[in-house]
């Protein structure tokens, strides 16, 4: 941006604005799940290689976020939740967001290939492509199933972390993928229930906009039921154990109770208490995923400290 343009707009992009293009909050979840995927995998990775690999996975995820902000600048401007993002607020141009996204994607994939291996780099490249092209450019504006399929992009990081350590894919990494993949629809639909106005104004075909809130509540319950077996399956895999089993049982019961509560409610009750139950379920969903991965980490720490329960049955994998 020239001095004249920058001065006339009264605001020149700061480093933080470019950083905001990478969606730091999403990136923190990516860093956490990728790190767990890497740490729970068999084998030993040098700490610097592990750190650099997670950093490149995070940069790749951030780059796809920048591409998302470039493509979605028009709808971000309409939605209250996203209107202050760097592109719609005019702090960064859409072209800059695109170039940052493209170059960081290339850098992250190339560096992950050199630092870890080509399987991990290939998975990262596919994740970026899936989020930027399949989800952002295609599904998001065309189908209410957008987040069901698009959720795969957010589910890949633990698989990539696992691939960094092992150089491959296994049942355990697929189960970690499944946990996030099936968790995504109830999580986002709960958000969509109380942010419905935003999505309808922007014309994004979220389920509550296209099929109504009754159907959305039903779908949240269906996906919650589908999610229930994933945790127990992980518990009886090589990365599970009694701690994880206990945690997953408690979290699944809470999540199911929350989903049933949403299913039994109607719009009158929801607007009456300003979507209290929906907001609570949304918060619970964040805790659900976070604590599941913390429990996996705990199992790995116990195993490495030789404190895990001997003879724990491994039926999966």
């Amino acid at each position: 941006m020239s001095d004249v343009n920058a001065a006339s707009k009264g605001r020149d992009a700061e480093f933080g604005d470019y950083f905001a293009l990478l969606k730091p909050r999403v990136m923190s979840l990516v860093i956490f799940t990728a790190a767990v995927g890497l740490f729970v995998a068999p084998g030993v990775v040098h700490p610097l290689i592990a750190f650099a690999s997670i950093l490149f996975i995070a940069i790749g995820a951030g780059a796809s976020g920048a591409l998302n902000m470039w493509w979605d600048a028009d709808i971000d401007e309409i939605m209250k939740r996203t209107a202050n993002r760097p592109v719609p607020s005019g702090r960064v141009t859409a072209e800059d967001a695109k170039m940052l996204g493209l170059w960081l994607s290339a850098l992250a994939v190339m560096m992950l290939a050199l630092t870890a291996n080509f399987i991990a780099a290939g998975l990262l490249a596919f994740t970026i492509f899936f989020y930027a092209v399949i989800y952002t450019m295609w599904l998001k504006r065309s189908t209410p199933q957008n987040i069901v399929i698009g959720g795969a992009a957010g589910a890949f990081p633990p698989m990539i972390g696992w691939a960094v350590a092992t150089g491959g894919i296994s049942v355990e990494s697929i189960l970690m993928f499944a946990l996030i993949f099936i968790w995504t629809p109830p999580h986002f639909w709960a958000l969509a229930l109380f942010m419905n106005d935003d999505y309808s104004k922007a014309g994004v075909p979220m389920l509550p906009v296209t099929h109504g809130t009754r159907e959305t509540r039903k779908q949240i319950l269906i996906y919650t039921l589908l999610l229930l077996p994933v945790g127990p399956l992980l518990a009886f895999s090589s990365i599970g154990g009694p701690v994880f089993l206990g945690v997953t049982i408690v979290l699944n019961l809470l999540f199911l109770a929350g989903a049933l509560r949403l299913y039994r409610r109607n719009d009158a009750a929801a607007t009456g208490d300003k979507f209290a139950a929906e907001r609570k379920f949304f918060r619970l969903s964040l805790i659900y995923l976070f604590v599941h991965f913390v429990a996996l980490l705990a199992e790995a720490v116990l195993t490495r400290a030789s404190l895990s329960l001997a003879g724990w049955p491994v039926w999966v994998g």
Partner: peptide
Amino acid sequence: HELHQRRRKRNAI
């Protein structure tokens, strides 16, 4: 200008 100070900060980071 204040703008130059901001840019210097951005470039330093």
